[in-house]
Amino acid sequence: MDDSTQQPRAEQVGVDQGEVFVRLLLEHEPQVRAFLRGLLPTWNDVDEVVQEASLIAWRKFSDFEQGTAFGGWFLTIARFEALKHRRRIARTPLVFADDVWDLLAEESTQDEPQPLYRKHLEKCLAKMHPDKRDVLLRVHSAGVVIRDVAIQSGKSEQAFYKAIQRLRASLIDCVSKSIGIENA
């Protein structure tokens, strides 16, 4: 074969690799987004980290061994990107300490099915006082700046952050207990 027949084949392999990458990315992105949402304060942060992780994964896709777990590989890239992002936003009062990050990351990778957690989360949210539930859901909505919500509530930022932390803790406690009761 001469060089002219080799060129289209190399381009064809590149196209196939791109298609393979996009298929794998689309298949595993929802799981990575859910994982990152447990680590990052807003959906905007999740979008930013997923975008960056996707670019890095694309650049390194030639190093990925076909037949191995793309989801785990992509999740690892996303986790490191989340840590970088966390360092950039470290001055925000809602950033967790490193040990909490590690615990959240470990719990997020466990085999517990996401629908079970969501079912219990919905039940616990329904049990909350409507005003508290509305505030908690509002601060977790896309594009919401918690500082603005604090000002609207008439509380100081610090008092508002503490109130949100207490609401989150009670919600996590409720979900944990509810799952524990179901598994018992």
Rank of each mutant, 00 (worst) to 15 (best):
Q12C: 09
Q12V: 13
Q12H: 14
V13K: 13
G14C: 08
V15L: 15
V20M: 15
V22Y: 03
R23A: 15
L24I: 01
L24C: 08
L24R: 05
L26Q: 10
E27F: 04
E27W: 03
E27S: 08
P30G: 03
Q31G: 06
Q31M: 09
R33C: 10
R33W: 08
L36D: 05
R37V: 03
L40I: 01
T42Y: 05
D45V: 14
V46W: 04
V46G: 05
D47V: 09
D47E: 14
V49C: 11
V49A: 09
V49N: 07
V50E: 05
V50K: 09
E52G: 04
E52K: 12
A53W: 00
S54A: 15
I56S: 09
I56M: 06
I56L: 15
W58E: 03
W58C: 10
K60M: 03
K60L: 09
S62H: 14
D63Q: 15
E65D: 08
G67Q: 04
F70L: 03
G71D: 04
G71Q: 00
G71R: 00
G72A: 03
F74G: 00
F74L: 08
L75F: 04
L75Y: 05
T76H: 10
T76A: 12
I77F: 07
I77R: 04
R79W: 07
R79Q: 10
R79P: 00
F80E: 12
E81P: 12
E81S: 13
E81G: 05
H85T: 01
H85R: 07
R87N: 11
R87F: 10
R87D: 11
R87P: 02
T92G: 04
P93E: 04
P93W: 10
P93S: 02
V95C: 08
A97I: 10
A97Y: 12
D98Y: 12
D99L: 08
W101V: 03
D102E: 14
D102M: 08
L103N: 06
E107L: 11
E107M: 12
S108V: 01
S108D: 10
S108L: 13
T109D: 05
D111N: 12
D111P: 07
D111I: 02
P115T: 01
Y117K: 14
H120K: 05
L121T: 00
E122W: 02
C124F: 10
C124P: 02
L125P: 01
L125S: 06
A126L: 09
P130Y: 02
D131W: 01
K132W: 06
D134I: 00
L136R: 00
L136S: 07
L136D: 01
L137F: 07
R138Q: 12
R138S: 07
V139G: 07
V139E: 03
S141G: 12
A142R: 13
A142P: 01
R147T: 13
R147W: 10
I151T: 13
S153F: 02
G154H: 11
K155I: 04
Q158N: 10
